[in-house]
Amino acid sequence: MKVLISVDMEGIAGIVHPSETGPDRHDYARGRAAMTAEANAAIAGVLDARPDAEVRVADAHGTFRNLVPEDLDRRARLVRGRPRALGMLAGLDGSVDAVMLVGYHARAGAGPAVLAHTMSDAVLDVRVDGRPMGEIGLNTAMAGHLGVPVVLLSGDDAACAELRALVPDAVTVPVKEALGQGAAVTLHPQEARELLREAAAQAVARPVPVPPLTLTGPVRLEVDLAVPYMVDLAMLVPGVGRTGDGGRTVAFTAVDYAEAYRLVLLLVQLSSIKPA
């Protein structure tokens, strides 16, 4: 069995503020240690149930260089750094049997939800065939495009609800109850890790497989961007057009979901370019 564990940071137990998630912030060292510990809990759970499993861990937060390599369970292989194909799902291909999303957060505009956003602060909303999707939905559908189910998610209660709405059979581990964008009632980190280890084992040992989320093409993609100059940059991409009032929203019809997913990743990168 092959399992990919994609690990973000905002949904880790105890984390509620950007000072804990950014490399230039004073609490970041504690945040990345907690992120690594939850990754290890998920790895251990998979290997408790499937000792012969091949486990890859994709560092999926910010710079993709947050997990502490020397502290990660040595039985797993780490996917680290950027840029890379498939972004938060780097290491995914059709040979993978299951994906787990650890430390994930709800989409932009959700609430109450801890540190909710979609890919970057430049993206206000993403709609796929009219349905709002954040990182949870976008990544779950990308895995599904390759025939791979998302079998587990950990994060706050809003993130867990977001996955259950898409994949009702997935295992979810709510490690904190969101009170707002920067506040939560959180489990003790050790308790969260114990629950995550048990849930990861359960997710890969269940006799009935979780079905992948599959979106058939063509796919209509709409992205609301934070400021108009980002729309201007997006218009340089062939096939992208303005929609609505034209000031903040771009649209694209992709031949399949994978093309739509790659465009979202590209728009996020373009949005980091500042006007001269």
Results as ranks from 00 to 15, higher is better:
Gly247Arg: 12
Ala60Lys: 11
Gly137Leu: 01
Ala58Leu: 14
Leu153Thr: 03
Ala106Glu: 07
Ala183Asp: 06
Glu222Asp: 05
Val96Cys: 07
Asp97Ile: 00
Gly22Asn: 14
Leu115Pro: 03
Arg220Asp: 08
Ala29Asp: 14
Gly134Lys: 11
Asp48Val: 00
Thr21His: 13
Pro112Glu: 08
Val219Phe: 07
Val123Arg: 04
Gly111Ala: 15
Ala90Cys: 09
Met235His: 05
Ala122Tyr: 10
Ile12Glu: 03
Ala226Tyr: 04
Val208Met: 07
Gly111Gln: 13
His188Ala: 14
Ala170Val: 02
Leu124Arg: 05
Val46Cys: 04
Thr172Asp: 09
Glu54Tyr: 01
Ser19Lys: 05
Thr172Ala: 15
Arg82Tyr: 14
Val231Ile: 01
Ala178Leu: 13
Pro189Met: 11
Pro18Ser: 15
Lys2Val: 04
Ala37Pro: 01
Gly241His: 13
Met119Ile: 09
Arg84Thr: 09
Arg56Gln: 07
Val237Gln: 15
Arg220Glu: 14
Asp52Phe: 01
Ala122Cys: 06
Thr63Glu: 06
Ala161Asn: 01
Ala90Ile: 01
Pro275Asn: 13
Pro69Glu: 10
Asp121Met: 13
Ala42His: 00
Ala53Cys: 12
Ala108Val: 00
Val171Asp: 05
Ser19His: 07
Gly182Tyr: 02
Leu221Glu: 09
Val57Trp: 02
Leu152Glu: 05
Ala44His: 12
Gly244Gln: 13
Pro69Lys: 12
Ala85Ser: 06
Leu124Glu: 09
His61Cys: 14
Asp93Glu: 00
Ile273Ala: 10
Ala205Val: 06
Tyr28His: 15
Ala258Tyr: 14
Arg82Thr: 13
Leu138Ala: 05
Val68Leu: 11
Phe252Cys: 01
Thr172Phe: 12
Leu267His: 08
Val102His: 08
Glu162Val: 00
Thr253Gly: 04
Ala200Trp: 12
Leu92Met: 04
Val79Pro: 14
Met230His: 06
Ala90Tyr: 01
Leu233Val: 00
Pro212His: 02
